[in-house]
Simulated scan of single mutants.
Amino acid sequence: MAQHLNVQLVAVEEKVWSGEAEMVMARTTEGELGVLPGHAPLLGQLADSGQVRIKLPGGKQVVYEVAGGFLSVNERGVTVLAETATPASASQGN
Rank of each mutant, 00 (worst) to 15 (best):
M1F: 11
M1G: 15
M1E: 02
A2G: 12
H4L: 13
L5A: 06
L5R: 03
L5H: 01
N6D: 15
N6R: 08
V7F: 02
Q8K: 13
V10I: 14
V10C: 02
A11K: 03
A11S: 13
V12Q: 11
V12Y: 12
V12W: 08
E13C: 00
E14T: 13
E14Y: 05
E14S: 15
E14G: 05
K15A: 12
K15V: 14
W17D: 12
S18D: 13
S18W: 07
S18N: 14
S18Y: 06
G19I: 04
G19L: 11
G19D: 14
G19W: 05
E22Y: 02
E22H: 04
M23C: 07
V24T: 08
V24L: 05
V24A: 02
M25P: 05
M25L: 11
M25H: 03
M25C: 08
A26P: 01
R27E: 09
T28N: 08
T29W: 03
G31V: 07
L33G: 04
L33D: 01
L33V: 09
G34F: 00
L36Q: 07
L36G: 09
L36Y: 10
P37K: 01
P37C: 07
P37D: 06
G38P: 07
A40I: 11
A40M: 10
A40H: 09
P41H: 07
P41G: 06
L42A: 07
L42K: 04
L43V: 14
L43Q: 02
L43S: 11
L43P: 07
Q45E: 15
L46D: 07
L46A: 04
A47E: 11
A47G: 10
D48G: 12
D48C: 06
D48Y: 12
D48S: 15
D48K: 15
S49E: 14
S49P: 00
S49Y: 10
G50M: 11
G50C: 11
G50N: 09
G50P: 02
Q51A: 09
V52G: 01
R53Q: 11
I54M: 10
K55M: 12
K55H: 04
K55F: 03
K55I: 01
L56W: 03
L56N: 05
L56T: 05
P57Y: 08
P57R: 05
P57H: 07
G58I: 03
G58E: 00
G59Q: 07
K60I: 06
Q61E: 15
Q61T: 10
V62D: 02
Y64V: 02
E65A: 07
V66T: 03
A67W: 00
G68S: 06
G68R: 00
G68H: 04
G69C: 10
G69L: 08
G69S: 09
L71Y: 01
L71V: 10
S72D: 05
V73D: 03
N74L: 14
N74A: 11
N74M: 13
N74H: 15
E75N: 14
E75D: 15
R76E: 15
R76P: 13
G77K: 03
T79P: 05
T79D: 09
V80C: 02
L81V: 06
L81H: 04
A82V: 02
T84M: 10
T84P: 00
A85F: 05
A85C: 06
A85N: 02
T86Q: 14
P87G: 08
P87Q: 13
S89Q: 07
S89C: 01
S89G: 08
S89A: 14
A90F: 09
A90W: 04
S91W: 05
S91I: 03
Q92N: 09
Q92I: 06
Q92E: 09
G93A: 12
N94W: 09
